[in-house]
Amino acid sequence: MQAYANPTRFNALALTILPWCVGSTVLLFLVGLYYSLVVAPQDYQQGETVRIMFIHVPAAWMAMATYTVMALASAVAIIWRHPLADVAAKTAAPIGACFTFLALVTGSLWGKPMWGTWWVWDARLTSVFVLFLLYLGYIAIWQAIEEPAKAARLAAIVALVGFVNIPIIKYSVDWWNSLHQPASVFRMDGPAIHSSILIPLLIMALAYTMLFLTLHLIAMRTEIMRRRIHNMEQAEVQG
């Protein structure tokens, strides 16, 4: 791990892995989309709308996974001051925010035909919505502070506080919902998962994961280059 603390080494590693990442992402998406749109049968109750699950659930999974990556990177940044840790956290945020946005919107587009309502305040939707706000707040902190080192520390604190808060919110809203006994049980995954549904879901989930990995690596390289540019510009000014 210490070996990859060196940005140059990281860049070299990233360049070797990147072609494989891009290739597998494209392949997985092609196969996944074929399975989702052609192979998977219509659902007995939901009809064609069940296909939304193949892009909604992976988005939601990635939204949470990305935040976990951000929180872990932030913890490493604060505790061990690994130089690449805050780069990893900073670059993961916009990607995670996009996944969260997609999870929310595709969820609404699935909910409307399924349950007749665009939104419902159950624990899962509420916590994903709050997750979206957390991403926005985290990105805002980076934008609002000019010195990179200061921004990194504050952003790390924000990420960790948010990470602790998400399960608390999920628990609170769950409890709150059980008090008010919602009209029906809103279960996003449906009653049981048959293999004809499971396989497209898993392929798409893998595709989304590889997409994240690819984009994250590229974004990290960009950020490392940006910092090098910043240093070089300083050197130029000082002559």
Partner: peptide, 8 residues
């Protein structure tokens, strides 16, 4: 944005 989730 930061405090709202904490207040929920």
């Amino acid at each position: 944005l930061l405090i709202l989730p904490l207040y929920v």
